[in-house]
């Protein structure tokens, strides 16, 4: 029950939902940046939704199966191929012993999620195997190292479910222009009226400085009256604005506390979408009321509550 990593590419890490209940110790969250794709990959195999998967960034990645099994691939279209045959994401598929799965280059999105039956095996560090390189926590060896060539991954379940595709209406739209919804808050009252107008009525471009810690956005300069702020806890998706006026959206590998003023935080759905925006992508920010945001998030979570794909109608199955 193993996959051999032939090429790890730019960055491939084991991720689950991340670490919780430990933020007061200075331990970050980690976890799959596109948490929605991570969940669908597990759902397709009937796994616990937050089981460990491989997060593959931008491509250059290849694994060889050392036995027959069923895997699932969701998230970015990284030009995946099973040997030479193209393989579209958002489905589970059978890979035979000796076959090679390669993810070559980004065609749509940034991060792909590869799941295996029951989830990949890795030691739990603070109840999670999420790889946080900066903190030296999680991953295959528990020490924060990303996956490396020649490493072998085992998974937890002996049985493989039948392959199937995610129904089209459930596939997140990564192609149209991203409109990222923001729950307003934190220091928003300290930004100038012009800056608030600009924040939600301008195009923002994803900068090259974008990783699992944060994504810098380029656009109009946002001015905040507040300079010396006392550090405070940072939620996922927080939009902090350093003195240069260019916002940084903080993602899974962010620090736990920080002292830059913030406009608020992206909704979890918007965080997942931003995690798929390559540098150069143009996007917009839109304010969203807290009540609506909470309702929306509950609806989003409800879609995974019914039985998993492997138990669903045969009509969904693909050859």
């Amino acid at each position: 029950m193993t996959l051999l990593i032939e090429r790890h590419g730019l960055l491939a890490t084991l991720q689950d939902a991340g670490r919780f209940g430990v933020r007061h110790l200075g331990v970050g969250q980690g976890g799959g940046a596109d948490w929605i794709a991570l969940r669908w990959a597990n759902w397709l195999l009937g796994n616990p939704l937050d089981a460990a998967v491989i997060e593959i960034t931008l491509g250059g990645f290849a694994v060889v199966a050392e036995q027959d099994c069923c895997l699932a691939l969701c998230g970015a279209d990284l030009d995946a191929r099973l040997d030479d045959a193209p393989l579209a994401p958002w489905r589970s598929f059978v890979i035979r012993k000796g076959q090679r799965l390669s993810l070559n280059q980004a065609r749509l999105g940034v991060r792909a999620y590869l799941a295996a039956p029951g989830g990949f095996q890795a030691p739990a560090v603070l109840d999670s195997c999420a790889t946080v390189v900066r903190e030296g926590l999680g991953g295959l060896h528990g020490d924060g190292r990303p996956l490396a060539d020649g490493e072998r991954l085992h998974w937890r379940a002996a049985a493989s479910p039948a392959p199937c595709a995610l129904p089209a209406e459930r596939i997140p739209d990564l192609a149209s222009r991203a409109l990222l919804e923001v729950v307003l808050g934190a220091q928003i009252g300290d930004f100038s009226g012009q800056s608030l107008f600009d924040a939600f009525n301008s195009d923002w471009k994803v900068d090259n400085r974008a990783d699992r810690m944060g994504v810098r956005l380029l656009g109009p300069r946002l001015e905040c009256r507040r300079r010396d702020m006392i550090s405070e806890g940072i939620p996922l998706g927080a939009i902090q604005v350093p003195t240069d006026g260019q916002p940084i959206v903080l993602l899974n590998d962010r620090q736990t506390i920080g002292g830059y003023p913030r406009l608020g935080a992206l909704t979890p759905q918007a965080v997942a979408r931003l995690a798929q925006c390559a540098p150069g992508t143009v996007l917009r920010l839109a304010p969203l009321g807290l009540e609506t945001a909470q309702r929306q998030q509950r609806q989003l979570l409800a879609q995974w509550q019914h039985s998993h794909a492997a138990a669903s109608a045969p009509a969904r199955r693909t050859a």
């Binding site: 919780f20 933020r23 006392i230 550090s231 405070e232 806890g233 909470q294």
Partner: peptide, 22 residues
Amino acid sequence: LIDLVPSYTTLMLHYDLAQLDD
């Protein structure tokens, strides 16, 4: 309660939306 992060003058409280609303 998911996380509670103390910092100098503040506490950031992260709660489970499946159990509580605002």
